[in-house]
Design a protein around this nucleic acid. Structure first.
Lengths: 186, 186
DNA sequence: TAGTAAAAACAGACCGGTTGGTATGCAGAA
DNA sequence: TTCTGCATACCAACCGGTCTGTTTTTACTA
């Protein structure tokens, strides 16, 4: 794997786990097994340009992963539960989540960097659009699908936050169990 | 107002808006209109001890604010919508939320500082317990109330995250509108 | 009530380490 | 030989934290 790709993949995980500011440049480079020269060669804009690249890359991998799961399941409900199941698996195995989310980045960058916020918004929109399409298949109206896809995205991200605070996967499990109740009402 | 209280109140807002690492010590002291001497006099443990103090203080004010709103409303549904309404008001007025949430802190501190994570967990538990009590009044079973209070907390925090990413209060408004649909199903 | 000593509440200079960022060097491919 | 793809040395700025004063308040005594 070439240096640039390796940097993006490694940095993405670190940023997802701990946020932007909390990950120092030297630590980042050590984890990527590379140097500042390589960083500023591939990303003249430095750390922030790398972050944007990570978010764009995340957009692709996330889309691919989620769509893959969604294609295996018949209903939106089952599909969402499958996605949450993957998060729980990661959480129970590694004690942390380095996929499917980027809340650490959103909260600290939204006030600081316009491009970063845009990239995060695009990411959320992409996820919601996948949910949205599946909901339409399930017979939801366009308006309903919009509301529900947003609601699903929010509760998953919020659930992850609770998991981090509790250092446990129980909140996400609870949310996963509540979702069927929620979906059948519409 | 004495220095210590002023420091806690000012720092709390900054930490809520931008997270822990993103707020530098010097910037913090400037905002509090004080000096390092005062900081390390009142908080020998430095910045982190101040953060913990902020989280404890937040626990009290948040509890008071939410309980006040909850006492004015008859149902849990109306009460939750009132809480979200306050968040939306803040968001539309200031462009940022410096109350009712601390997601920025959770995501970056959960892996770094055990005491900070504990304080965050206590905060979420407190919020959920208020929701829980009101749900019992509404006739929910104990189990249902636990699930729903967690679900409500998660979707509000997640909704705020989406608001930050979109720089808009629409996500929270949508969530506020979906909640009645959700509540009547149980 | 005045005087005084001790303690609390700061203020600010200073520290080593780290930050993100730059400039230069240098090997290998084209 | 020229260009890409790094590596290394170096930088000023800033980080959180410590240390040594100085001022203000408090407590007690004469």
């Amino acid at each position: 794997m070439d240096t640039k790709t390796r940097m993006i993949e490694t940095a993405t995980k670190l940023f997802q786990q701990r946020g932007y500011k909390a990950v120092g440049l030297n630590e980042l480079l050590r984890a990527c097994e590379t140097t500042k020269g390589a960083l500023y060669h591939h990303f003249p804009g430095g750390k922030e340009e790398l972050l944007i690249a990570c978010l764009h890359s995340l957009n692709e991998t996330l889309t691919r992963d989620i769509e893959l799961l969604f294609n295996c399941e018949s209903s939106t409900e089952a599909a969402v539960r499958a996605v949450i199941g993957e998060m729980i698996k990661d959480l129970d195995r590694d004690g942390t989540i380095a996929g499917y989310t980027f809340s650490s980045i959103v909260s600290e960058m939204s006030l600081l960097s316009e491009p970063a916020r845009d990239a995060c918004r695009a990411l959320y929109e992409k996820i919601q659009s996948i949910f949205h399409a599946k909901l339409l298949e399930d017979g939801f109206s366009n308006n309903q699908a919009s509301s529900v896809s947003l609601f699903l995205t929010a509760s998953i991200e919020g659930g992850l936050l609770l998991c981090r605070a509790q250092n446990s996967s129980i909140p996400l499990k609870t949310i996963s169990n509540v979702i069927p109740e929620l979906m059948k009402e519409f």
